[in-house]
Simulated scan of single mutants.
Amino acid sequence: METAAENEAGTQETMADYSRELEASFRKIGEGEIISGTVISVNEEEVILDLNYFAQGIIKAEDMSNDPKFNILEEVKIGSVIEATVIKTDDGAGNIQLSCKEAKDILSWDILKQYLNDEKEISVKVSEVVNSGVIAYAEGIRGFIPASQLSLSYVEDLEPWMNRQLTVKVITVDEEKKKLVLSAKAVEKQKAETEINHKISMLVPGTVLEGTVESLMPYGAFIALADGLSGLVHISQISSKRIKKPSEVLAVGDKVKVKVLGTNDHKISLSIKAVEEDSRPDEMEEKEAAEYSSNEEIGTSLGDLFKKLKL
Rank of each mutant, 00 (worst) to 15 (best):
V173Q: 08
T300A: 09
I72F: 13
K241G: 13
A289Q: 13
M217K: 14
I59N: 05
Q114P: 03
S183N: 01
K88R: 14
E74L: 09
V249C: 00
I58F: 09
G94F: 04
E31L: 05
E176M: 07
I141N: 07
P160N: 03
V252K: 14
V181Q: 09
S269V: 05
F54M: 06
L182S: 05
A16V: 11
D90G: 10
I58H: 08
S183K: 03
E156F: 09
V256I: 13
S36I: 04
S151W: 04
S201A: 10
E193L: 08
D67Q: 05
R27G: 06
I96G: 07
V47H: 01
G94K: 06
E283T: 15
E74N: 14
V258S: 04
E195Y: 00
I78G: 00
V208H: 04
E74T: 10
A224K: 15
G262L: 00
D157K: 15
V155M: 04
P246K: 06
V76W: 05
E23G: 06
I272A: 10
S183E: 01
S271T: 00
A274R: 06
S19M: 13
I243P: 02
K104F: 14
T3I: 04
I87C: 02
K189Q: 15
R20Y: 01
Y53P: 02
D118P: 01
S301H: 06
I106F: 11
V249R: 12
L209V: 04
T167N: 11
S19E: 15
L305T: 08
N66P: 02
I48H: 09
E210R: 11
E176W: 08
V249W: 05
A4W: 08
H266V: 06
S148L: 08
A84G: 02
A103Y: 11
I298N: 09
V181A: 03
P68V: 04
A4K: 13
Q165L: 11
W161A: 00
I268S: 01
P160R: 00
V168Q: 03
I243S: 01
E8H: 08
